[in-house]
Simulated assay, not measured.
Amino acid sequence: MHPSELLNPLWTALTTEPDGLGESPFWHPQEQRLYWVDIPGRRIARMAVQGLQAQGPVAYWPLTQEPGCIAPVQGGGLVMALRDGIYLASEWGGPLQLLAAAPYDTAKQRFNDGKCDAQGRFWAGSLYEPKDQPLGALYMLDGQGLHAMVGGEKDGANHGVVTANGLAWSPDGRTAYWADTATHQVRAFDFDATSGHLSHARVFYQATPKPPGWAWGSAAPYGGRPDGAAVDAEGCYWSAQYEGGRLLRIAPSGQVLAEVPTPALCPTMPCFGGADLKTLFITTARHGRSQAELAQYPGAGCVWAMRVEVAGLGVKELRWG
Rank of each mutant, 00 (worst) to 15 (best):
V79A: 01
S170D: 06
E309V: 09
A100K: 03
S195K: 01
T106A: 13
G213Y: 03
E17D: 14
V260F: 00
C266M: 11
W304Y: 14
A215Q: 14
Q206M: 07
I250Q: 03
A251H: 13
S170Y: 01
R43D: 01
R174D: 07
R249I: 02
V231C: 10
P130V: 04
L257S: 10
P3L: 14
L277K: 04
Q53N: 13
L265K: 04
Y60N: 10
L257W: 06
F204G: 00
T163N: 09
P72T: 00
V315A: 15
A193L: 14
A148W: 10
P221W: 00
Y205P: 00
G120Q: 04
L138P: 10
Q55M: 13
E17L: 12
A311T: 06
P40A: 09
L82M: 10
Q97L: 14
K210F: 06
K108T: 15
Y177M: 07
S126Q: 03
Y205S: 02
L135A: 12
T181M: 08
D19T: 14
A102H: 09
T183H: 08
R319W: 12
D113P: 05
T15M: 06
A157Q: 10
L10Y: 12
F272E: 06
G254W: 04
T208M: 12
A220M: 10
A124L: 11
V231F: 08
L135W: 06
P25I: 09
Y297T: 08
R33N: 07
S170P: 04
D142N: 15
D113Q: 01
G136E: 08
I86E: 02
N158Q: 15
Y177E: 00
F204L: 01
P9A: 12
V79H: 05
Q144H: 14
G93Y: 06
E153F: 08
P209I: 07
G254E: 00
A188P: 04
G94T: 04
G224L: 09
R246K: 15
D227Y: 05
V256M: 00
G235D: 06
R225D: 13
G20P: 00
